[in-house]
Design a protein around this nucleic acid. Structure first.
Lengths: 218, 218, 218, 218
DNA sequence: TATGAATGAGAGTTCATTCAT
DNA sequence: AATGAATGAACTCTCATTCAT
């Protein structure tokens, strides 16, 4: 099992692409081997099992996510900016690592209970960071006092779903969409109504994506 | 292939449960046969394939969803109430058919392209109904003029994610959670800031769910 | 998994033959499937794993062996006859189930520790029965007072090795060989020297077997 | 391929240990490589194949055995002493090279037919030496005139089985056990009944070994 | 309806061996 | 002498599906 090599990175990339496109179970080791130009047996120089590959992908997705959010949480920004940054970071993370995040968000349930437990723990940590930011805002009177878990789940739910419909070639830029999310989710939880009644972001565009994906919406 | 029989319902119920708990690919026909007390060969008197079972489940989930939403959309309620009803109906639908909806939201990508296309079409229809309600509200000056697709995706994203963390035995009632969603999502899109500053729903509770699920959040 | 069927017996027989001839590890499921005219996957209707097959064979070998010896031990025969019967039964068992016994004596170490433990227990039981017979004889003054474990291991060692060189088409009959074993092993442990100096059994023949097997002897 | 080097000896030792503990087939080249701190590819500088290793081990086991026995056979000892020496040498050889002998006695059937034929020839030679000693004794009236092959197989069978139950840390010394074997096997074949009725060797001890091995006995 | 034997393709994985470096 | 990437064949086992009974 090698970890830093080039081939390893190739294998990871191929697996991410395939898992995203076909799903974890529907992807065979043969598929991955073909994608990187190896015999399927040769893959086992780099990984120890197919699940290992999934774990690697998910762990990396999580690690990137969390470390960035921790930085935001630790920063000196006022809560509203922290919150806005958290949402932007979340969406940007999905957009720039769409494959990895799709695999994480959709295939984590394929892990064995032991691995799931680890992932769950990390996920909970992420949620807690978001809740912390929210509660900071509540303490400072910036956010309405609501059930923090519920706030967190609502906001992150909307953000997570992003992976199901975001397409890099859609009509709206990532920036526009992030602005939109921040604006809308913000109003839902801020303590005082937004004073500014200027045109909100994203108000003019029509469609954020082609709309051809299975699951967006229902 | 029989369709109205009792056994057929049993098979569907077993499949829903198993697909939800283990995932579609990780569930074998043997698992389903065991659950209903049949030999696996005998299942083929009722269904024509494993995918058929998945299709059946997803179609039923969709059908229930859409017909209810159509009713709401057609009603004479004012837009804000229509919108609120749509959100409530969506959450309630997930809560009362958690298995079916989980299978739909999580496993639809396992369908063949042909079947996916059908499901996509229905899903789009659902989205359009929600968008319609929103745009009605915009026309009446109730909702801010935003990108309707984006509004719809944000709202439905938050609602869809519900299936990942809702647990029937959580501390908050379904009603409380639905009120919360309506309140928060509403503020995000309504034209004028909420005048009432009374305590919002769900403000006191602590946790909406055990929080032990893999994916909620990150 | 079916157990009483015809095919099951065929599979067992084929496995015994192949395990005996090629060894357990060198025999593939494909080999067995070919021998019984099935697809290799079809074997799993009858067994749950390759090891399962080995266990089945070994357990049956053991069961036959032990039940017969128990009968001998329980009988009213005088110790010398019991002992003689035990030796005869042991050799006859090997000769008439050469495949099964070869697999048992040669391949038991391929079992998982759990299964080995079970087999060990049964084997110990067998040894104890033989020791019991010997000690009965000692008590009655028929056998010399020796270390019973050592007696048992010596006698059974000589008998077990039989599977390595016995060939059904050898020049000596099974009876002759059994008489020989009884005579020689007996003299080793009986209390008084054999009075009879008549020609002992097997004294005339030349070779008991072709002698072409790898391991006999060294 | 090097043969006299240090690493070569290390490899042989590791292979003997592993083949004895896990069996030939269940031992991988990786296992051996790990044991000697090499990469598995590097093993091929010393050996030409896995079977080669097995051959080397078995040949060496045989060579030691035979040369010692030839010396005994050529000596001027009277037949009874030669016979006793042969038995002692056999048991001592197993005890002091338990790994090597276990591999030889248990795994020889894994060899290709060509290699087996060679081993068989050597083995036959060993048997013939023992038979020769016995027949010398018969000629001198020391041993009863029995079928020599049968005598040899019985005696060597008992001795060979030693590898299945001998444990260096057992309660009896190797000497005691060898004395026991010589005494008991001797009586089986000597021409006149043992005159001495003194307490035989090994008569007092209880257990020759832990008795926890799979196969001893049955 | 229901069975259960059988299929046949393919899954993930292991492994002895090779060879350029 | 040693590496370690790569092979390619074989392995055990799974599974959706078929079909004669």
């Amino acid at each position: 099992m090698v970890s830093g090599s080039n081939k390893m990175a190739e294998i990871m990339a191929a697996a991410i692409q395939l898992f995203k496109d076909k799903g974890y179970h529907a992807t065979s080791m043969q598929d991955i081997a073909d994608a990187v130009g190896l015999q399927k047996g040769s893959l086992y120089h780099y990984i120890s099992s197919k699940e290992d590959l999934l774990i690697l992908i998910i762990r990396e997705a999580l690690a990137q996510y969390i470390s960035n959010l921790e930085e935001i949480a630790r920063s000196n920004l006022p809560p509203r900016d922290k919150f806005a940054e958290a949402v932007r970071h979340h969406l940007k993370g999905i957009a720039t690592n769409l494959g990895m995040l799709t695999v994480f968000l959709r295939e984590a349930h394929a892990l064995t209970p032991e691995q799931r437990a680890i992932v769950d723990r990390e996920t909970r940590r992420y949620n807690e960071l978001v809740e912390g930011i929210y509660q900071e805002g509540v303490a400072q009177g910036v956010f309405r006092p609501l059930n923090p878990k519920l706030v967190c789940r609502t906001v992150l739910g909307a953000c997570n779903w992003f992976y199901r419909w975001y397409r890099p070639d859609g009509p709206l830029s990532l920036e526009e969409m992030a602005d939109f999310f921040v604006d809308v989710l913000f109003r839902g939880i801020e303590a005082r109504p937004a004073a500014s009644e200027t045109a909100p972001p994203g108000s003019g565009g029509q469609s954020a994506a082609g709309g051809s994906d299975t699951s967006a919406g229902a």
